[in-house]
Design a binder for these strands. Sequence first.
DNA 1: CATAAATGAGTGAGTATCCACTCATTATTG
DNA 2: CAATAATGAGTGGATACTCACTCATTTATG
Lengths: 217, 217
Amino acid sequence: MATEMSIQAAFQEVMAASGEIPPKQQQVLAASLALFAEQGFANTTTKQIAARAGVAEGTVYRRYKTKDELLAAVLAPFTTEVLPKLVKEFAAKVVRKKYATRHALITAVITDRLAFLQENGQVMRVLFTELLVRTDLREQFLARAVPMIQANLYPILDRLKANDELPDWPNDRIAQFMIGTMLSQFTRSSLTAEPITTVGPLMIQFLEQGLAPTPTA
Amino acid sequence: MATEMSIQAAFQEVMAASGEIPPKQQQVLAASLALFAEQGFANTTTKQIAARAGVAEGTVYRRYKTKDELLAAVLAPFTTEVLPKLVKEFAAKVVRKKYATRHALITAVITDRLAFLQENGQVMRVLFTELLVRTDLREQFLARAVPMIQANLYPILDRLKANDELPDWPNDRIAQFMIGTMLSQFTRSSLTAEPITTVGPLMIQFLEQGLAPTPTA
DNA sequence: CATAAATGAGTGAGTATCCACTCATTATTG
DNA sequence: CAATAATGAGTGGATACTCACTCATTTATG
């Protein structure tokens, strides 16, 4: 399952970091993630989690004392491990290859990040849904994600602007257009279960044109 | 409150349609909508609804026999009354004014629909959140919304394509880019509580460029 | 090496709480 | 006074969470 790859990896890291996590606890985490993604957090019972994990209900509470802690445990590796790593890897790659053109940047962003979205579809969905409803989680997430994007993406945008490869719009708007376009496609794909890859080329073209610098420079 | 205008209007229609709805029932509907938007459906209790509506808990169940019916009652007018009317009004306006250019169309869409999104922010949010989690609701909604868009927006797109004002992309992709761009801005605005109007001009420019026809025609 | 002690993951029946929903009773309206 | 609306205490079922106990594995001891 390509779907679980990245998160599996994240769980591995957490395991390695904080000693051993026994296999049943991993099953609990995996079952929680799957059920939260399918039904939403609030509609999932600890009984269901135990059943899908093939575990007694008490086991669910062994390591994580509340259902909310379970949600945090499922989401945390994503924001603290996966997301930073992938943003930085991406930035490093872009910088290394010295993408000079808008086309190169956007192509890289789209292909790379679409794959990322698809691989982490489950967590993305849980995160997204809960962010809409939980004020605290939202603030916490934004406090992490926004600076990360500012530090890694904005310099690249500035460079391209200087080279007249991007219009002189605020960085957050440019980022918004890029991220928004991708997320809207991701949402649609994940709801209709259609493969997201087919949309790639058109998105690239759309973004490339949309983010063309205005001649009034 | 500009926020409640359109929905208030929709509730009015439903009232007129199916006899009288006593004022306390309207308070119940309004309270439900507000709480669902703030906390999500699953995290809202009927006790909370009664409290906010200034009503006894039994009153909540007077007209709507289950909590799910209450959700349906809050959402239904949106999809069956507000949305169709606004789509058709929009299409009629566009056709009447005979927008020949991409710029005119997009400007009209953005200004019009952004105002619409903002006015119906609460319902939009509830609908959006629940669509992510409830399969049945999703199918039901798509079965209504998709044909509506196809019938009203696609012909306009086709005409513009014929006039070389739009690229020869599938209509659903073009619609996706437009709707996605707006929704992403709406989501951001509604989460950060920043006014959405400030983004309008940039969105228009971005979409206009992004949807420019490719010279390879 | 054999035995005892300690550890801690796992269990599942049990509990306190919460919540959607009911209904007998009371207030309101025409 | 009839009919409808509103009330709020009450109910059953579900759900998050607990706890006394088991048992396999690891560690200490003579």
